[in-house]
Amino acid sequence: MGKGDRTVTGHRELPEEVESSVFSASLALELVPPATASSLTAALRGWIVEIQDWARGKGLLVGHVKVLVESDTGYIRLSGTGGAVTSNVSESWEPSRVGPFEVKVAAIIVGFTPREFEELAGNTLERALSRLLPER
């Protein structure tokens, strides 16, 4: 999928009866052929929606789900807290083709065990980005 790392951690300060899981990942990618900005945005928006829908289905609270895509031509930001996903695109962003880029994601869910959340968040992120590649 690309070089990067991902982690899931807990937090000491939350009250004992509330668990939280943090998923974060950073991936350096270059898609061949290059994706358009709109298809990349749609894929990552889909990932946020998938996490939020899954959390809602489990009766869990979405802390936040954030995505930042950075390339030489600017950035795309996406975020959600369980409802509508908001997005911002820098004015300098090149929409027609996205060259090498870095995608950073962070998702915090309150009320769940870290391992299951890690698998879900990692797998769905990989699926979302894989959809941008041509079928073989």
Binding site: E13, L68, K104, A106, I108
Partner: peptide, 28 residues
């Protein structure tokens, strides 16, 4: 709290001076 920072990149894009503390919370 995670190992990846997103907000600091956004603040830097605005030309601000940012120091990062990752991978845990400054309250504990």
């Amino acid at each position: 709290v995670g190992d990846v920072s997103i907000d600091d990149a956004v603040l830097r894009q605005e030309g601000l001076s940012v120091r990062e503390l990752f991978g845990g919370c400054i309250c504990c």
